[in-house]
Design a protein around this nucleic acid. Structure first.
Lengths: 189, 189
DNA sequence: GTCTATATTCAGATAGAC
DNA sequence: GTCTATCTGAATATAGAC
């Protein structure tokens, strides 16, 4: 709702801490220190800690959706390229965009029911993009299986990279995306 | 270390709560209530809350390793069947064995450094099983890609099922495992 | 092995001055 | 918009009786 520049900046910093420490282990005092203010001042910007989480997750999902949509616009239209585009966009929001999408994926459970209800349509819109692209790949005979399961397996493989991938290592996120797509597509003809 | 039957039972109950609520959100009072004792009594069995987590994760990883090894013994020896066997075993420990493996995967970060050091060899042994089976599939030309990445993508896809799969639904864990293997293997010849 | 009682610490959140 | 000061509740853990 409210989106003052200050609040946006605070949300960005919160996302970083939530990824590093986890939502539960991040105290409002830690958040405040990172933001260069005292803990009491935080509650001028956010009603409570829950609202900070909701703000982060909203931004994270929103970014993922925006970046994926834009990437699809500029993508070649063949199903394989679009699959690659989506995978690249997904990892881009996880590793280079800035953390908020990671929080959206890994701390969703910590949202209260109200926030979940409010944000689930955003998440669903993003997943719908995926199902769309996967459907096209299925119809083209590029991959095979159940559309629902394939989407979830692919997203699972991508999401889990957060747990092991080191962006400082030799591979780029794009490398990972291409490898994953290569894995589920029959060998190059 | 210590493995009194009582402690084993408590560990089992703790695993269940850790999955339902998450480690951080599970209080020692909740644990005690579930176990039918008072919170103070818990510390007769475990030095502190950390030790409960370590016990759960040790059991979870140990179970996963044991079940996978045994499943491979009885598995046909062709690479595709062994891949399927590993995937089935993995989901079996996640959904039907009982929760401890889920905790091992999702709360690993919460272990202190000492526990991580003590348990990482167990985890590595389990992952080595996977790499072995995946290597065989690569050599047989059944799948293609980097052994390291393929293992991690497959495990990611499997692990993430915890977040969306409903065991009460129409599909069995074995169905999921077979679908995943089908997804990464070229269409039936 | 479990109980009661409690020490201790720390978290989220509020009030009112500046 | 930020500060200081503080309330309130809750969580981990301990001590000693039974």
């Amino acid at each position: 709702m409210n989106a003052s520049p200050r609040r946006k900046e605070l949300t960005r910093l919160a996302a970083q801490l939530f990824v590093q420490e986890g939502f539960d282990k991040t105290t409002v005092r830690m958040l405040a220190q990172e933001m260069g203010i005292k803990s009491g001042s935080l509650f001028h910007h956010f009603k409570d800690k829950q609202e900070i989480l909701a703000a982060v997750i909203e931004e994270g999902t929103h970014n993922a959706l925006r970046i994926a949509r834009r990437a699809l616009e500029y993508s070649p239209t063949d199903p394989e390229a679009r699959l690659r585009t989506m995978a690249r966009a997904h990892l881009e929001t996880l590793f280079t965009d800035r953390n908020a999408h990671v929080v959206a994926l890994f701390e969703w459970r910590r949202l209260d029911d109200e926030a979940k209800a409010h944000l689930s349509h955003l998440r669903d819109a993003y997943e719908a993009l995926w199902v769309e692209v996967i459907d096209a790949a299925l119809e083209a005979g590029l991959i095979h299986g159940d559309r629902f399961l394939v989407s979830r397996f692919v997203l699972g493989a991508l999401n889990w990279t957060v747990r092991w991938y080191d962006p400082a290592g030799p591979r780029t996120p794009d490398d990972l995306a291409d490898e994953l797509v290569g894995m589920i597509i029959p060998a190059k003809r």
